[in-house]
Structure formats: structure tokens, C-alpha cells
Simulated scan of single mutants.
Amino acid sequence: MAWFLYLIECDDGSLYTGIATDVEARFAAHASGKGARYTRAKKPLRVLASFELAGKSEALRAEYRVKRLSPMQKRALIAGKRTLESVLPQTEASEEE
């Protein structure tokens, strides 16, 4: 089953990073106040990007790495100026190929 890493823009300009098997359904949960505590406090506006990964473990590792990025680095990832593979350690990126 495919998993997705997604980035949401919130009403205060911050970015939320999460994983899900259905990004649209997960965003709907965030928007209705049934998502993460972060998005209950900061209203989610829209999904800015999503990236498909092979499975849950890969998605969890990618989420961990992306959450450690600065907002500027996350925006570069969203804009396509940086690849998701460039965020992952070389051993993880090469295992997914």
C-alpha cells in the first residue's frame, strides 16, 4: 500500500508535515478539527505538496527528516527546488531505488 508524506499550509503561514494513505481524507480530518493537535490550533488552509512513498516505514522516516528542515528548506521542497531524496540519508534514498 502506498503512503504519502504531505505538507499543509496553516493560516499563520506555518507548515505542517504528516503522513497518510489518503491525503485528501486526512486533510479533511485536519480541516474539521479531528486531525493533529497542531492543526486544531492553527487552521489548515491547503495541501501544498505530497510525495508518494513505498510503505509506512519509508513514510515515517521521510516525515522525521522533513520535520527537521527549516521552513525555508521545506518551501524549497514544495517548490521542487529540492527533492525528497536529497532530504533522506544516502542509504535510505538508495534503498528506495
Rank of each mutant, 00 (worst) to 15 (best):
M1H: 10
M1N: 11
W3A: 00
F4E: 08
F4P: 03
Y6V: 05
L7P: 03
C10F: 01
C10A: 13
C10G: 03
C10I: 04
C10S: 08
D11A: 15
D11E: 15
D11W: 09
D12P: 12
G13S: 12
G13K: 07
S14N: 11
Y16N: 05
T17Q: 01
A20S: 14
A20Y: 01
D22E: 08
D22L: 01
E24L: 10
R26K: 14
R26G: 07
F27M: 10
A28F: 05
A28C: 04
H30Y: 10
H30P: 09
G33N: 10
K34R: 15
K34C: 11
G35P: 09
G35C: 12
G35N: 12
R37E: 15
Y38C: 05
R40Y: 06
A41V: 08
K43P: 06
R46H: 14
V47P: 02
V47M: 02
L48K: 08
F51P: 03
E52L: 05
E52C: 07
A54K: 04
A54Y: 00
G55L: 00
K56S: 09
K56D: 04
S57E: 04
E58N: 01
E58A: 07
E58R: 03
E58Y: 01
E58C: 00
E58H: 01
A59T: 05
A59F: 06
L60T: 06
L60R: 09
R61H: 09
R61Q: 12
E63T: 03
Y64T: 14
R65L: 05
V66P: 04
V66M: 07
R68F: 04
R68E: 15
L69A: 04
P71Q: 12
P71C: 10
M72W: 09
Q73W: 07
I78D: 10
K81P: 00
T83G: 11
L84K: 08
E85G: 10
E85C: 04
S86P: 02
V87Y: 01
V87C: 06
L88W: 09
L88Q: 06
L88R: 06
P89I: 09
T91Q: 09
E95N: 12
E95F: 06
E95Y: 09
E97F: 12
E97G: 15
